[in-house]
């Protein structure tokens, strides 16, 4: 099960709390009824379905309920980052972590596996 960082809750939560919602950055036209057949085809049907980096929408449906965007690698399932709906598509090459812990999306010290304060004493 993946851990996904909700950009609104600002913490990593298990995949069970989320629902996938399709490709991101497909804007609905304000002049919907004026679209040509070609434009509407692109809007409704044409998706990238890439092998590799994809920008996609998720909803923290069993959490805060917010829709947000994520940059994920479809081969490794690695989330490069998540960001709020409405924010521009980020330049992912600058942000991709590397090294053995890349898979964990972030430094293990930032994962929710640190010793809680109450456990630290004794």
């Amino acid at each position: 099960m993946l851990l996904i960082r909700c950009p609104y809750c600002e913490e990593e939560r298990p995949e069970l709390e989320f629902r996938h919602a399709g490709e991101a950055h497909i804007a609905r036209s304000a002049e919907m009824s004026e679209l040509s057949d070609d434009e509407f085809e692109k809007f409704l049907f044409i998706r990238q379905n890439p092998k590799g980096l994809i920008f996609e929408r998720w909803r923290h449906v069993h959490g805060c309920g917010r829709f947000f965007n994520a940059a994920r690698d479809t081969v490794s399932d690695k989330f490069h980052l998540t960001y709020k709906a409405g924010e521009p598509r980020p330049d992912i090459t600058l942000m991709a972590p590397s090294g053995p812990s890349a898979w964990a999306n972030r430094d293990p010290a930032e994962l929710n596996v640190n010793t809680p304060d109450r456990d630290k004493g004794a």
Binding site: R19, A21, R28, R57, R59, G65, R66, F67, A85, G86
Partner: peptide, 13 residues
């Protein structure tokens, strides 16, 4: 409900 939330949050915020 999900459909409405989707449009409200992302298309008609």
């Amino acid at each position: 409900m999900n459909h409405m939330e989707d449009y409200l949050q992302t298309e008609f915020p």
